[in-house]
Design a protein around this nucleic acid. Sequence first.
DNA 1: TATGGTGTATTAGTATATTAGGACGGTATA
DNA 2: TATACCGTCCTAATATACTAATACACCATA
Lengths: 131, 131
Amino acid sequence: MSPREFVPHIPIYVQIMESLHRALARGELKPGDRVPAVRELAAQLVVNPNTVQRAYQELEREGLLVTRRGQGTFVAGTGAVVEEVRKRLAGEAVQRYLDAMADLGFSAEGAAGFLADLLRGNGTPRKEGEA
Amino acid sequence: MSPREFVPHIPIYVQIMESLHRALARGELKPGDRVPAVRELAAQLVVNPNTVQRAYQELEREGLLVTRRGQGTFVAGTGAVVEEVRKRLAGEAVQRYLDAMADLGFSAEGAAGFLADLLRGNGTPRKEGEA
DNA sequence: TATGGTGTATTAGTATATTAGGACGGTATA
DNA sequence: TATACCGTCCTAATATACTAATACACCATA
């Protein structure tokens, strides 16, 4: 992550979280690996250490990081744990999507169909209820 | 919508918007129909009229409502317009979903597969890249 | 045990979003 | 033209989220 390349209107700590999510998903970060010290990453990103710590704190709550006071912060558990958390987060994303689509009158199947049709390059997805 | 049955941590005006989205999607509200006056709905929901107006304002920006000063607020355009806006909003929801999944390392196809597997009652969706 | 590196807690400044109060302006109609 | 009902604007109070400054606590190791 380069210094100060943050999108406005999205909290910096969230963007740091997303960055680590991606690194974890890509396997650039593995269980047991140590992540940069809060001060180190903060200096690199030209951000307050507490902002980095906020990101680490949330990631720890998610189960992806574990901190050992005085030693550092590390990627938690085993590969299975990371994969499990990844699935859980994906499940939450799905839920948000389904909720949003429900507001628009789409059933779960309709929401899945809308997405599938979109990927097929179909500009006009079939209407709800249609085959 | 009953008085004061709002979920905390989600802005009231957003919840009002969602309520109208659903009414529109269900066809309970059709183009040309008049929606309640801001003061009327505000009284019913025990909310400030400006909060309702904020919701109407956003819905007008989306293209779903049109207001005629001194007369009232109405569902905009024709059925086609409502359907088009509905698709646009659905497209935005899809995009948010894909972005979130991308952070977790899922391709668009992977995100679609994850959702499809979930609906199939499959508790453990296939991993990215697998058939 | 001193030192340098680590995470953590406390506090506060700042910006932004949300809600609300009150006054204003347009339209229809008796 | 008066009245009643409409949306709208302006202003401000309030809450909340975010970021930052600073001081504290823990651990490894020379």
